[in-house]
Design a protein around this nucleic acid. Structure first.
Lengths: 151, 151
DNA sequence: TCATCTATTTGTCTGATGCAAATGGATGCT
DNA sequence: AGCATCCATTTGCATCAGACAAATAGATGA
């Protein structure tokens, strides 16, 4: 049942993953493309923008680390970079002195919007000759897939 | 036009990418999960299994490097690992002494099949409650997406 | 107050990776 | 033929990401 589809999805996913990880830009590329900052910083900005898992919760260094799939210490350093770059601000929790809320700064918000727009253009090009129905269906199925996949 | 769909796709892709790169298994995980070899070796095996870009062409170290999105030197080293692990064999080209063909060994082929099966089960679980039509449609659109995306 | 727990930071070591130089065969020109 | 040049691959070297473990610091409960 759906053997072919499964096979096709698997092959596509392998290639997609490769295509994505190929985008890791080194320092040289960053200089050449005149990017504002390191890509890792952008990841942090994205994560902070996504907000906490549940309402009431606050963005923390630990949560960023979890989302990025890295060690807490690595998370700490990456967040420090983002802060130094001026895209993320640390706000001390009033309730728990160990905890630190992370917020986007104005600059951070612009970066989020800019990168999101860029990515969207990129994807829009990939789906250039699709019908609206196909785009909508793909968006729906992909979201569902990602949701299940994250377990 | 399709603004929402585009936004949804973009967000899903960001998360998917994170989920995928999170799977990078360290040495410890390999030991714990009792994996046969390093994950990088598996990537090489996958690439070699996919075969060359065009018929007539042969798998080379350089092509593997390109597919993996790494430097030629890195490619060379990773291929060397795969060879050492016994999954890939170097075959000297009879036409061009500089060139080396890469082939899967029997063990390499088994690894490809095993990992492919594992991944399929993984994805099958993620699409467990989908209809056959949805799976087929997703497979179709995803393949199309990946194809365009690889430019 | 002390013990313990948790979030974050810092110290340190390993390994991935890129860049540049070296190697070695192929090809073309004189 | 001899030589210059080119290209695929390999090797030397330096850098940076990232994990593990220890240190810090506030919170909480006995």
């Amino acid at each position: 049942m759906g053997e072919e589809a499964l096979d096709a999805v698997e092959r596509s996913m392998v290639r997609l993953r490769r295509g994505m990880s190929r985008q890791r830009l080194g320092k040289a590329a960053i200089r050449d493309h005149n990017l504002p900052v390191d890509v890792r910083v952008l990841h942090v900005v994205d994560v902070v923008d996504e907000g906490p898992d549940r309402p009431g919760e606050e963005m923390s260094v630990g949560l960023v680390a979890t989302r990025l799939g890295v060690d807490a210490s690595r998370g700490s350093r990456i967040v420090a970079e983002a802060v130094k770059a001026g895209y993320v601000r640390r706000v001390a929790s009033q309730e728990d002195g160990r905890r630190i809320h992370l917020e986007l700064t104005g600059a951070g918000r612009s970066v989020v919007e800019a990168t999101r727009r860029t990515r969207q253009e990129h994807f829009a090009k990939a789906m250039g000759d699709w019908t609206d129905e196909e785009r909508a269906e793909f968006a729906r199925l992909l979201a569902r897939f990602v949701h299940s996949y994250e377990d």
